[in-house]
Computed example of a mutant assay.
Amino acid sequence: MVSGTQPIEVAQQGQVAVVTFRGELDLEDSVEAALALHSALSDTSTAATLLDLSQLTFADSTLLNTTLRAIAAHQTAHRPLVVAGPLHNAIARLYAITGTLEILDPADSREDGLHRIRRLRTAHRPGFGGEKQD
């Protein structure tokens, strides 16, 4: 875990690993960002990941790549990953220009993101409305 004043923070909220990116992230931060997302993915005490970009004011294409790789890794692991905003204009523009904003489908807020994760997890659990039990 990194302290709350750092540009990259990993925390736990219930069964959700919350990765927060703050300020400006670029090539220098790409390894730490990727490690944070991998740490969230491999955390066995959690069942989903929330990527909070609401405090991120600048990012370059390395963050775009890191985000897309994390989404793919989470999908392969059948683990929900939800991106939360609101996105700063520069961040929204980065994702919009590259056509990835629709893929990310960011939640409006951290709370909305956590609610979406709860819905996703409930929908995919046998006996909780998402799948029929045999």
Rank of each mutant, 00 (worst) to 15 (best):
T98Y: 06
R118H: 06
D29T: 03
E111L: 09
L81E: 03
L114I: 04
R69A: 09
G127W: 02
G85E: 07
D52S: 08
D105Y: 01
A77Q: 10
E28D: 15
L50G: 01
Q13H: 12
P126C: 03
T62M: 10
I8N: 11
R121P: 00
V16M: 08
S39A: 14
A77P: 06
G99T: 07
R116E: 01
A34T: 15
T49S: 13
G129K: 04
A36I: 09
A36D: 11
G23N: 07
T67A: 14
V19T: 09
E102H: 10
L41E: 06
V31E: 14
S61Y: 05
A70R: 09
L101G: 04
L41G: 05
L37V: 10
S61E: 11
L51S: 05
A40Y: 02
E131W: 06
T62P: 04
T98S: 15
V16K: 01
Q55W: 10
S39R: 15
V19G: 10
G99Q: 10
E111M: 09
R119F: 00
G14H: 02
G113M: 05
F21H: 07
Q6C: 08
R69N: 14
P7N: 12
H38W: 06
T20A: 15
A34L: 08
T57R: 15
L50P: 02
D112E: 12
D26M: 08
R69P: 01
G99F: 03
L101D: 12
L35T: 09
V83T: 14
E32A: 15
A47Y: 01
L41A: 05
D60Y: 09
G23E: 06
S42M: 12
T66D: 10
T100K: 03
P106G: 06
R69V: 00
Q12H: 12
F21A: 10
G14R: 02
R79I: 00
L51A: 13
R79Q: 10
A40K: 07
E131T: 10
L25W: 03
I103G: 07
K132V: 11
T76G: 10
A59I: 02
S109G: 05
L104M: 12
T20R: 15
A40D: 07
A77D: 05
S30F: 02
S39C: 08
A77V: 09
A59N: 04
A40Q: 08
H124Q: 13
A11D: 10
M1R: 14
